[in-house]
Nucleic acid binder design. Structure first.
Length: 213
DNA sequence: TACCAGGAGAAAA
DNA sequence: TTTTCTCATGGT
């Protein structure tokens, strides 16, 4: 089984996922920060609160009183932490020139800048690069680790950069494929979790889907 | 009631 | 350098 074969099976089974669920690139960025260790349904509530208070722009987030920002973020959990992280990100985003200025920076340099922002780790940076900046970067999350280590395509204890490199060299460097693949992995993980909640260790690999036809 | 969810950073060992 | 702890709400 190869990365490409798994992708084709997932795509055939679930169809296109149309990710990321957001109206604008900046909303993608906000969602990427708010979804850290948090269910997406809770992130949606927080984003809706930001939007209802006209706080879904980097300028508005920086100008809003911290107490108001915290109030908006409460449904997504870790609200104090995320309010500060969101502000850190917005400050960098404005200082760096926003869109379209940032589109001129090459992917490696942009990734380094993102990782230098307090609160932006590898996964969040890659979410932003792939879904907001449309760069060919593969996002490695907990689902990806579990599913692909079970398929013996990845080592579960390898560090993030090693896993990302394995994925990116195992596929064609294509933004559309990376976008769809990660979305399908999340969809699959959630789908299987719902079907088999009794399974120990959250059995994320739906064997029938991946067995040889 | 207990556990987990589309992590990251600081502190401790 | 590696491991552990903290941040926190909402759904199951």
């Amino acid at each position: 089984m190869t990365f490409t074969q798994v992708y084709k099976k997932l795509l055939k089974h679930y169809g296109r996922q149309h990710w990321w669920p957001a109206e604008t690139p900046f909303e993608v960025m906000v969602g990427a920060i708010l979804t850290q260790n948090t269910a997406w349904t809770n992130v949606e509530r927080a984003i809706a609160r930001l939007e209802s208070r006209s706080c879904l722009t980097p300028q508005a987030i920086l100008e809003a009183p911290l107490s108001e920002l915290v109030e908006c973020l409460k449904p997504s959990g870790y609200f104090n932490l995320k309010a500060q992280r969101l502000r850190n990100y917005c400050q960098w985003y404005i200082d760096a020139g926003e869109f379209p200025c940032l589109s001129c920076i090459n992917t490696d340099a942009l990734r380094k800048q993102l990782l230098a922002v307090n609160g932006i780790g590898p996964e969040t940076a890659d979410d932003i690069l792939l879904y907001a900046f449309e760069r060919p970067v593969f996002v490695i999350d907990a689902y990806t680790r579990r599913i692909f280590s079970r398929l013996k395509l990845l080592a579960s204890d390898a560090n993030y950069e090693v896993l990302r490199h394995q994925f990116e060299t195992g596929l064609q460097m294509d933004v559309a494929v990376f976008n769809e693949y990660h979305a399908l992995i999340v969809r699959h993980a959630k789908d299987v979790c719902k079907k088999r909640p009794d399974c120990a260790d959250c059995c994320l690999v739906h064997i029938c889907l991946f067995c040889e036809e």
